[in-house]
Design a protein around this nucleic acid. Structure first.
Lengths: 260, 260
DNA sequence: AACGCTGATCTCATAATCCGAGAACGCAGA
DNA sequence: TCTGCGTTCTCGGATTATGAGATCAGCGTT
């Protein structure tokens, strides 16, 4: 049998969810009902959470998330979490395929922010965590751009320019727009020596459960070591890893038990 | 007997504390030891937290705070928490003393940011939540300035100027420095019609358990209704309320049980 | 290739912990 | 004073958590 779950902890988080939901302050009985708990149990749990500083009881019918919760997340951010969650997987990709692997997100300026990487021996890509590079010319960037809203994408394409970094760089807004549509269609991007000569790269999206692209995962290799024929297999592998990352990040097991 | 605490929840938070502590990733056995838990128990709790998304197991010896924790605190901030925790107390102050009551913090520009207020009927003070006013001329501001480090205080005093808002406003850096020293000494500030004519105000610090001043609490009244003789009694009341707020915010009951 | 290490996972009987209905309480407004 | 709402408490019964140790899995070493 799988490891049994501590039910009290799940209930405590159900209550915390209620408090974090839009309505700022809720009463104990209403939270109890929403979480399928008896009033007595909800009270005990809230009293415990309050003693721990995770919840503050500010008055009748008023509970709120406490300072302790803020302290616990003070050193965390989506980026650092993504980095630590993906590092082991990046290492495995490098080990099994010989590629340099990257994870990146798109910032508000439409630049690609590199979150983490695992380099192979022949790595030539000058990425360090936190560095920002142009989006239009890399596999990661194109995957991330492909999921922009139509408006945002049009703005990006109109803003240009897209200077050529190699002979194969996509440099016209029209061609880039077609490329992004193709990427949305097949759910992965290929950078065929568009950023560096002789460097091929495959990138796939990392998805939020709601379908949004929240990050991208890529594997790069010298074009002498990654033939076009091998690309599809690499895509399959990366897609699996991307799904694993998504699962790891968003796993959420707390179906509120409906009381009789 | 007082409400019994759900022990599992306390243990879960002890583990979360380990993860939030400086060292980013720790192994299960080391966390178990640090929290005084058996390996089996720690494992069960971590598995539960992982299923809830509160913790991510990124690899052997690597656990980290999960996305769920970020989601729970997304809508919270110290300021909103302070506001909801103090509102009921501000109301009570207004009810029992007839004063207008305020809570405020100092921002990075040394301006007083008003967090919450409860106005009496004759209120003339134009404060709304989030508004920022000068610090040198109010009770709240002076309490907050008094706790600046010597360097920061000197910088503030040197930066000036301090334009007079009434005939009693403290306008020279020397006098303000002396006033702040006196406030540190007696642990409360009085604004004797320094900001508005005929408006007296008493302010006390709200303290972090480590002694730092993190916010201030004030009560203001028309000088015809608050004689200088009544000030000391008001201070006593406010001090009690400030201590109650501090307790409410920082309560922390999770002594890790030392295993035999 | 077998070894030893570290960390993670599982098993199971024991007993400690948690549960829930309902009653009582405190407070505020009608 | 009465009513309503939200909170707090009580207590026996049983679900639930506990912990030592065996097992498993991965990795770097001898």
């Amino acid at each position: 049998m799988a490891t049994p779950e501590i039910k009290s902890v799940g209930k405590a988080f159900a209550l915390l969810d209620c408090l974090a939901a839009e309505d700022d302050c809720v009463s104990l009985p209403s939270m109890a009902k929403r979480c399928g708990l008896s009033v007595a149990t909800a009270h005990r749990l809230l009293a415990t959470l309050e003693a721990l500083g995770a919840v503050v009881h500010t008055g009748p019918g008023q509970y709120a998330i406490g300072l302790r919760m803020l302290d616990l997340t003070r050193r965390s951010s989506f980026e650092t979490l993504l980095a630590s969650a993906t590092m082991p997987i990046l290492s495995r990709i490098t080990r099994t395929t010989g590629s340099t692997a990257h994870v990146a997100v798109l910032d508000s300026e439409r630049m690609v922010t590199y979150i983490a990487r695992s380099a192979n021996r022949a790595n030539r890509i000058p990425t360090t965590p936190g560095i920002k590079l142009e989006a239009y010319c890399s596999g990661l960037g194109k995957v991330l751009l492909a999921d922009l809203s139509t408006d945002d994408r049009d703005t990006y394409l109109a803003d240009g320019p897209f200077p050529p970094l190699t002979a194969r760089t996509i440099i016209t807004p029209e061609a880039l727009d077609r490329e992004l549509a193709a990427i949305r269609d097949r759910r992965f991007a290929v950078d065929d020596c568009e950023m560096f000569d002789n460097l091929r790269c495959v990138a796939v999206p990392i998805l939020h459960p709601d379908g949004r692209v929240i990050a991208a995962l890529s594997a790069s290799q010298d074009s002498t070591e990654l033939s076009r024929a091998q690309i599809q297999e690499l895509v399959t592998q990366l897609t699996g890893h991307a799904a694993a990352i998504s699962t790891k990040l968003f796993r959420r097991g707390s179906a509120p038990r409906a009381a009789h």
